Simulated scan of single mutants.
Amino acid sequence: MKVVAFKRELQGTGASRRLRISGQTPGIIYGGTEAPVTIALDHNALFHALKKEAFHSSILDLEIDGQVQKVLLRDFQMHAYKQLVLHADFQRIDANKPVHVKVALHFENAEVSPAVKLHGATISHVANEIEISCLPADLPEFIVVDLTNVDVGHSVHVADLKLPKGVTAITHGNNLTIATASVPAGHVAAEAAAAEEAKK
């Protein structure tokens, strides 16, 4: 994905406010061997890009003055109530050094799992993203969580995930829970009542 930016000479609150009024968003690029560079980006293009999941976990081609740098989106600030991006931070990446990044989880096959199919259970997503480490070339857009074999009372943990080649989950020593399957309380009561009725 490509992002076009412009070098920003003026800094400070007033300069940033004028930038936003003119339809641009202030930002910064840092990391690597070069000094940090303050930049300005087209607000509308950035706002729409931020709605795309891939923009948050892909290596981006950031073009400044005709030169392209490989970067990752590291942070961004939104206005408290307006649809306004206040600032964006990008980090330069080295193709030979691993990156640490949060990647979205895509849950699949819940409808065919024993929990849902046989017991009418609900599968709750405890986490929607996990932190991973990999070389930039191996960075996945998302990680699939296959729920095919999940039964009632079972949970899916980070250790259960099939990670793409070259990708390691960063768990800080905790085997985090990703999803759980449980039968809604009302459903259990209804089943118990039906069983009682059948005995009569």
Rank of each mutant, 00 (worst) to 15 (best):
A190R: 09
A190Q: 14
G173E: 09
D89V: 06
K165I: 05
L84K: 13
S182W: 00
I178V: 13
N174F: 08
T171Y: 08
F142D: 11
A181E: 13
R92Y: 14
H106L: 13
E197Q: 11
L84M: 13
P98E: 07
A121H: 02
C134R: 12
H79A: 04
V183F: 04
A104G: 12
H154L: 07
I143N: 06
S57I: 02
L135N: 09
V150Y: 01
V150C: 04
I170D: 10
P164G: 01
L86F: 05
I64W: 01
A190C: 04
L118T: 13
A198M: 05
V152E: 03
L139H: 03
A195M: 12
K117R: 14
P140S: 13
I132P: 01
V112M: 09
R74D: 10
I178L: 03
H87V: 09
A127N: 07
L118W: 09
T180G: 01
D138W: 06
G186T: 10
F90L: 11
S57H: 03
T148S: 04
V188N: 10
G153W: 07
N128K: 07
A80M: 10
A192P: 06
A169R: 05
E129V: 02
S113Y: 11
A181G: 14
C134T: 05
I170E: 15
N149G: 07
L84H: 12
V85M: 04
V156L: 11
G153Q: 06
V144P: 05
T122E: 05
L139R: 04
H157I: 06
N96P: 00
G166W: 02
D146I: 05
V145C: 10
A179Q: 06
K70T: 06
E141Q: 13
D94S: 15
V103P: 00
V188H: 04
V183K: 04
V145A: 08
L73P: 00
L118E: 08
N174V: 15
K165G: 08
P136L: 02
C134S: 07
V68I: 13
H154D: 03
D146T: 13
A95I: 12
L62S: 01
E108Y: 03
V116I: 14
D61Q: 08
D75S: 14
N149V: 02
V103T: 10
S182E: 12
E141D: 10
E141R: 12
L86E: 14
